[in-house]
């Protein structure tokens, strides 16, 4: 839905996600909105970023057509490399990937993500699709971004199941369980951008989207969400960014939902 300000929440999320990509970085792209965020970053501030797709594609140039999946033929044409999933995952495992994107159904105050089971895994109330490559991205990239809808049933005190490890129960948990690096750098939702305290690793509200507020973001969070003293408004997408997004997704398949 287009808000009164002339862009959709998804368009703003794509712009916010794209800004997390630094120029020259190797990025594990993933599905849905990150497909567009990568293309947007490439065409604006990060022309030298490289995109990895787990089905076995490396691109230094976004595909010319909108992708519904990373396996669509336009994503192969002009690729830098077409190879196996194992080879792409080796790059991730060796620490060559700066940033990865994942989405999910449930996330908690330490950025752990669930895309597997709601309820008891032995008798779930909802069976979700599972990890795909998300567990690997969350385990092995230098940092990752989580993108999801901001709803109380999704932002929960503790996830029912950790598909993709965030910061566990906080502090130095990742090192204690043996993960070599990484952790979530941001949770970009339909209402806000949430980041994680460098010491405690607990989530805090970093910015609210222009159509939302601190009160609304906190009300739709299933725990007592901390708020940064510097909390501010998420920068809206610029006209130039919107032009690129709409050129990539002219029908709004991913960005006008």
């Amino acid at each position: 839905m287009v808000t009164s300000v002339g862009y959709t929440a998804q368009e703003l999320m794509v712009a916010a996600a794209a800004r997390e990509i630094h120029d020259g970085e190797v990025v594990f792209v993933g599905m849905r909105l990150p497909l567009i965020a990568f293309a947007l970053a490439k065409r604006t501030h990060a022309p030298n970023a490289v995109g990895l797709f787990e089905n076995g594609i490396v691109r230094d140039e976004p595909s010319r057509e909108l992708l519904y999946t990373m396996g669509d033929p336009p994503n192969v044409v002009g690729a830098e490399w077409c190879t196996s999933l194992s080879n792409i995952m080796c790059l991730l495992a060796q620490g060559a990937v700066a940033l990865g994107f994942i989405g999910g159904a449930q996330v908690d105050r330490f950025g752990n993500l669930n895309t597997s089971y709601i309820g008891d895994p032995c008798a779930p109330t909802t069976k979700l699709p599972g990890s795909g490559g998300a567990t690997d991205i969350a385990s092995l990239s230098h940092r990752h971004i989580i993108i999801m809808e901001h709803e109380r049933r999704r932002l929960v005190e503790r996830v029912d199941y950790i598909t993709s490890p965030g910061f566990g129960d906080g502090g130095d948990w990742r090192a204690r369980v043996g993960l070599p690096r990484g952790g979530p750098a941001a949770l970009i939702t339909t209402l806000s951008v949430i980041r994680f305290d460098p010491q405690t690793k607990e989530a805090y509200l970093d910015s609210c989207h222009p159509h939302s507020s601190v009160e609304e973001a906190r009300a739709h969070t299933g725990w007592d969400l901390k708020v940064a003293p510097t909390v501010h408004m998420t920068a809206p997408p610029t006209e130039a960014e919107l032009q690129v997004i709409r050129a990539i997704d002219p029908q709004g398949f991913w960005t006008h939902v």
């Binding site: 495992a93 597997s116 567990t135 385990s139 598909t163 993709s164 369980v177 043996g178």
Partner: peptide
Amino acid sequence: RSLLGSDLLRSNPHFRIIHDDGVP
């Protein structure tokens, strides 16, 4: 070194943690 800390290690009983020189 993927999957460490995840519940895939709990729901799939075929995975195990081993140690190599103390590295899980």
